[in-house]
Lab assay of single mutants.
Amino acid sequence: LVRYRTISKIPQITLNFVDLKGDPFLASPTSDREIIAPKIKERTHNVTEKVTQVLSLGADVLPEYKLQAPRIHRWTILHYSPFKAVWDWLILLLVIYTAVFTPYSAAFLLKETEEGPPATECGYACQPLAVVDLIVDIMFIVDILINFRTTYVNANEEVVSHPGRIAVHYFKGWFLIDMVAAIPFDLLIFGSGSEELIGLLKTARLLRLVRVARKLDRYSEYGAAVLFLLMCTFALIAHWLACIWYAIGNMEQPHMDSRIGWLHNLGDQIGKPYNSSGLGGPSIKDKYVTALYFTFSSLTSVGFGNVSPNTNSEKIFSICVMLIGSLMYASIFGNVSAIIQRLYSGTARYHTQMLRVREFIRFHQIPNPLRQRLEEYFQHAWSYTNGIDMNAVLKGFPECLQADICLHLNRSLLQHCKPFRGATKGCLRALAMKFKTTHAPPGDTLVHAGDLLTALYFISRGSIEILRGDVVVAILGKNDIFGEPLNLYARPGKSNGDVRALTYCDLHKIHR
């Protein structure tokens, strides 16, 4: 019993810090008490220290592992850092350059016999395009090294910054494609005289377009951006097909006994025919423009016929181009109408809503002055909100995010209106959640004399007048207030005048 009563005193000691020596009952000389009392004092002292730490809000209350900052290894790049964003855009520009100039170089340097010394005699450094290609190869190699040090988000939505895990993730992902696209074939085969082989191998750079397509997928929600990307894709495919079309004609031209190829026909049409040795002929500019003209006309199913396939190889390629053109029509131009419709969806919704308003007016036989006010209010409210119901949009977000959005939407009023000066951010967040926005066209009466005042109004834009009878008592403008002081009276009061809008007004109100 003594032991039980001794232990039962522990909660009292913990909360009230009572010393055991003052209790005459606990001072009985028993061996059990002498053993338990020192333990009680020690526990009391420890609990006292913990309570003191909690009340003082000291940093040592938290466990040590929670006080440590997340460790980022040296030379690790955050995937959302500004440097990584700028670097990704730079790589994107280099990939676009590669997609345009690599097929052009591979096709127009394929057994090209233009006048001038061969590239091997001039030297590697004197070729501007080769120098640019070398810079692109170096940048792609540097990009691989950067990807080995860039964080990523795993399946659990955690940012991984450990170098080993980053390397394994990159090896399992895009490393092989990036490595093949970054191989400097110019340096590996330079001086061997195989410019045709170098041009063909350099087309491996186009593998990076797969990554670019995935990154550009984030802009699919913007109709104008999608339309622009589709047109660029169409032009890029036409450019690639033009390079292939020229390569076919250029390879067949020296081996044909009869002059029936499209390059021969082009030379005869523009007065620059090929001679018996295969030299001469149109310039590279004429060849490229004509090839691009043929691919565009074939892809769009126009086909004027002034550039036509004559050999079997050219006919087979033309059939493939027609098939590609039909697929592009289905996948690209078939979506253009939907994209344009999405661009004008706001206008369509406006006309639909206006039609419903006019049908309501016609069905209920609203008189002319009231009908005009109804239409003007709808037009003004639509121009202010673009038909978007803010309350319906915010309803799907958590309250903390709703408060931040409301604070942002009402920031101008909260910053410049005098009653809100000096208020804490928590108070402003709470008030912003209570605001209701209303609009009024010129001549609209917001409050009639004798109406119950259940709200306090803040003028965000425009001006109003307060009338008693036919006498203008006051004219209020931006950041002015009218209405009933909230919670100042037990019952809502009545208006002693009319409140009429002089201009288009936007008002925020808080109800009782």
Rank of each mutant, 00 (worst) to 15 (best):
L413W: 04
Q68W: 04
Y80I: 11
G396D: 15
S283I: 01
G325H: 01
S301Y: 01
Q372C: 06
D268A: 09
T203A: 11
P163S: 06
I244N: 01
I248A: 01
E314F: 01
F420Y: 01
V160E: 14
T300F: 04
I260S: 04
P442Q: 14
C232N: 01
V180K: 01
E121R: 14
L216H: 04
V95G: 01
I237Q: 01
E115T: 14
D186G: 14
P419E: 08
L279F: 14
K111W: 14
G267I: 01
L145H: 01
L216Y: 05
L343E: 03
K436Q: 12
E376V: 07
I72D: 14
Y80P: 01
I96Q: 01
H439C: 07
H416Y: 13
C417F: 09
Y65N: 05
N368V: 08
T76G: 01
K84T: 01
A432G: 06
G199V: 09
L176R: 01
R208M: 07
S345P: 05
V302F: 03
Q341T: 08
P367N: 06
Y377T: 12
A330T: 01
A182F: 04
S81D: 01
Y104C: 01
D217C: 12
Y97M: 01
G199F: 01
T311H: 01
G164F: 14
T120V: 07
L299V: 01
D178F: 01
Y384M: 05
T300G: 04
I361K: 01
G123W: 15
C427I: 14
R218C: 08
I141V: 07
T437M: 09
Q379I: 15
K285Y: 14
L109M: 13
A238T: 04
S161M: 08
A330G: 03
A107K: 01
Y246G: 01
G334R: 07
P282V: 01
L109Y: 07
Y344C: 10
D137T: 08
Y384L: 10
P103M: 01
I340L: 04
H79V: 01
P118E: 03
F101E: 09
E121C: 05
Q379C: 05
E252I: 03
H79A: 01
T233D: 01
T290L: 01
F304T: 04
L67Q: 05
